[in-house]
Each structure stands twice: as structure tokens, then as C-alpha cells.
Design a protein around this nucleic acid. Structure first.
Lengths: 157, 157
DNA sequence: TATTGTTATACTCTATAACTATA
DNA sequence: TATAGTTATAGAGTATAACAATA
């Protein structure tokens, strides 16, 4: 038991690998955004919207960690392209609810699929290795849920 | 062997976990940058400089994937804070070599440590799990090298 | 009076183009 | 003539502040 690497060191190493991996795959997000004529922020916004649910602008500002005025701009442009729609709330006529249109939902799911298609080296792993890795990552993210449920979106902004 | 999940699905799932995890840790980079009064680009620049080596501005433009005029701005501000220094090359008086100062190298390594200190859930894994995860990620990143060598920096921009 | 969303405006970061000095 | 770096300027994206409508 001379100089076995301590846990913190090992974890740091591991974490470096993890961030390095992301680094190399981050351009996917930017490329895909550009391909669809969206800024990174607009794509992030699109991906963050769950189909079917409307959200007040105010809530979106919080969700997107940006200013309300910026939400106006973001939503404006998505609405121009028919991807989302504003709707005034009957209960409180100040607030506007923003929801995906059918077109928006389609584009969203198409892009999501595009973004989650796993990179080459990942497919080079064996099934057992993949299962192992998945299990470990699940522990890492303390995501208790079952297989395909954890719908953490792919936004990488 | 009824409906065993196919590899692509499993990999997609795994990839989602990966990006999700990193998503959640990306703010570290931004927070740390802000804490030190640096823009993300400035921090990325700082971290990308190896202590001791000077680099021509031109090379930095390529390294940082940005325009030469932007390099001027980036370096200007780092130099104002005494983190890097320009030095004219004797052999070709057009080119200026940019290198970390002692102060810059110190800050760089301090921040690097700050950024690579692994997040809580990672430390919650057992040593065996950590080793497993590291091994799998290494395969994923096809990094053949030994243990602590792969000095892929922590920049997450 | 407080709150939601918008508009007007300014600031930050990046790029393009014109320029200076070396080669 | 070509190249390294800088300066002047414009653009994209974001925020701050003042505003209108509703509560």
C-alpha cells in the first residue's frame, strides 16, 4: 500500500476525461444550431420546452437564466418561425403562456434525436461496457429512474 | 432474447447521461471565470497556455479558433492584469510571443485545480467504480496514454 | 402599489476591413 | 509583395431602465 493513487486524484483524473470528452463534442450543438438557422440560445430554448406544456414568459426567464427582455427576443424569433406560440392567460391577462406548436415539437424532437445519436467511439464499446458505463453515470447523476425515462435534455450551450 | 435493448439505444441513453452531467457542471466554469473577473474566453485562453512556453499571437488565433484582432483584445486584457507578457521575437521583429508571467502561471494552476476538483457525487463512488469509469472514459476518448499524463485542460467554454 | 411583458438603449464579445511595420 | 499584429468599425447577443397594461 505504498503509493496507491488516492481517491481525489483518481476522481480528478476521471473528471478531466469527462470534461475533455464534452469539449470535443460541444461543437455538435453549435453546428446543429447553425444548420437550423438558430442561435445556440434559441436552440437551447427550443429543447428546453416540453411538448404540450405552456409556460409563462416569466418562468422561462428563470428556466433560461436570462433577463425578461431577452425572453421576449428569444420567443419573438421562435414565434416568427412558427415554432412556438404565445397565448394570453384568461385568469391573468398580464401573463402570456408560451407553448410549442406542432411544427416546433417536430423540429425539437428531430434535433434532439440528431444530438443524442451517440458518437462513434461510444458505439465501439461492447454492450457490457456500455451497460457498465451507463450504470456508473447513473450513479454519478444520482438518477434513480429506470432506463429511458430520464429525459434530461441534450442542450449543451 | 426477446427485446434486449439494441446498442444504439443504449449508447444514446448513455450519451444523454453524459451530456446531462456535464450540462450541470458547466456553470462551474462560468462561475469561476466571473469570480476571477474574467470572461469565459479569457479564462479559456489563460488555461490553454502552458507555463514556460511563449506563443506567437498568430498561433494563438488558431489555438483559440478566433480572429487575430480578437487575440489582440484577449491578450491586451490579460496583459493589463499582469497575467501574460508580450515579447518581440529577435529573429522576426514582426511577431510577438505571448507567455504566462509568474503571476499568470500561479493563477492558472490555482484555477485549474479549482475546476478539476471533482464534484461531490463523483467522490461518492467507490475506488473500484472510479477506476472502472476512468477506464471506460479513456476508451471513449481513445486516449492511449498512462494514468495522470493526459493533460487535457479543463476549459469548458 | 406591485407585477408581466415590451421597448429603447447601452454594453460585451467577436469579426471584417483598413492600416503600420517588418520581411 | 506578403505577413504579423493593431486599430477602427460593425454586428450579434445580452442586460438595464423606462414604460404600458393589468392586477
Amino acid at each position: 500500500m505504498g503509493k496507491s493513487p488516492n481517491k481525489v486524484e483518481l476522481a480528478a483524473d476521471c473528471f478531466r476525461l469527462l470534461t475533455g470528452f464534452l469539449q470535443r463534442h460541444r461543437h455538435r450543438f453549435l453546428t446543429v444550431a447553425a444548420d437550423h438557422g438558430l442561435t445556440p440560445a434559441h436552440l437551447g430554448a427550443l429543447l428546453s420546452l416540453e411538448p404540450g406544456e405552456g409556460q409563462p414568459m416569466r418562468a422561462l426567464a428563470e428556466l433560461w437564466h436570462c433577463d425578461a427582455s431577452n425572453v421576449t427576443w428569444l420567443v419573438d424569433r421562435l414565434e416568427e418561425r412558427g415554432l412556438v406560440a404565445r397565448q394570453q392567460l384568461p385568469t391573468d391577462r398580464r401573463v402570456k403562456s408560451v407553448a410549442l406548436t406542432a411544427k416546433g415539437a417536430n423540429l425539437r424532437s428531430a434535433i434532439d434525436e440528431e444530438l443524442t445519436s451517440p458518437p462513434e467511439p461510444m458505439l465501439a464499446l461492447t454492450l457490457v461496457e456500455l451497460a457498465q458505463l451507463t450504470e456508473l453515470l447513473r450513479k454519478l447523476t444520482s438518477e434513480a429512474g429506470p432506463s429511458t425515462t430520464g429525459r434530461s435534455n441534450t442542450m449543451v450551450r
